[in-house]
């Protein structure tokens, strides 16, 4: 899958296609989304993605609490851009799910945002970010996310939507975040069950963000690395 996986218009003339894509190409190269003449939004690809090992997570939720802490200065599940779900009674590996934002190539949450609050940020590798100052709390993005659970959060106290920005906006992290920087969840995870990649996973594969991070040490601890 190409890194700059932009959405192209549907039925268009060759001439119009060349005109529009050349414009879009310039804009995408500069890192801004472009609204084409036919109303199609061209979204530049994110330069970073989180990958998770669903069999490695110990369910401590440290990533959740740390995520909220780095972004907002408070400890919280609700304000965490990564959500860890657990069912204490379920069988491994279905007892844990790590719900991370996929930074979709064709990000429906970006596309649906009526104010442009949710947009790729060229300053941080086009990671899809929500500008709380522009968010009007319509929750369209939350509803539009096609994954379960939705990878956008609802801050009911401030009445704004939240999403993973790969730690671009983390005043309490103490390091630069975003693609190329530090991701709090990756760094804080005691199990090393979360990793970062600049390579876009297959957008058509539901499981392409799930990876095997279990290594020899894991095997030495007696657990399966399969």
């Amino acid at each position: 899958m190409a890194e700059n996986d932009t959405t192209t218009p549907g039925a268009v003339t060759r001439r119009r296609f060349l005109r529009d894509t050349s414009l879009a190409g310039c804009a995408v190269a500069a890192g801004a989304q472009v609204l084409l003449a036919d109303g199609t939004l061209v979204i530049p690809a994110s330069q970073g993605f989180l990958l998770v090992d669903l069999k490695k997570c110990q369910g401590c939720s440290t990533c959740m609490m740390a995520c909220a802490l780095a972004h907002t200065g408070t400890a919280s599940y609700t304000l965490a851009r990564i959500q860890i779900q657990q069912d204490s009674f379920a069988r491994f590996p279905d007892d844990v799910f790590m719900a991370t934002c996929r930074q979709c190539a064709d990000a429906p949450c970006v596309r649906v945002c009526p104010t442009g609050a949710n947009a790729p940020d060229p300053a941080f590798g086009n990671v899809r970010r929500i500008d709380p100052a522009k968010c009007i709390g319509c929750r369209s993005c939350v509803a539009r996310c096609p994954y379960t659970p939705a990878r956008l959060q609802w801050d009911h106290a401030r009445q704004v939507a939240l999403k993973c920005d790969l730690c671009a906006d983390t005043p309490h992290l103490g390091s630069r975040g975003g693609p190329g920087g530090v991701q709090t969840c990756v760094r804080v995870c005691p199990e090393k069950a979360i990793s970062f990649t600049a390579t876009m996973p297959d957008q058509k594969d539901l499981h392409s963000y799930e990876v095997n991070l279990r290594d020899r040490a894991w095997a030495k601890l007696g657990m399966s690395v399969k």
Binding site: K55, K56, C57, Q58, G59, C60, S61, T62, M65, F92, P93, D95, V96, P190, E191, L221, G222, M223, S224
Partner: peptide, 11 residues
């Protein structure tokens, strides 16, 4: 071996 370590919150 098909198992995971599991912990309290924040462990």
């Amino acid at each position: 071996p098909d198992r995971r370590p599991q912990s309290c919150q924040g462990c």
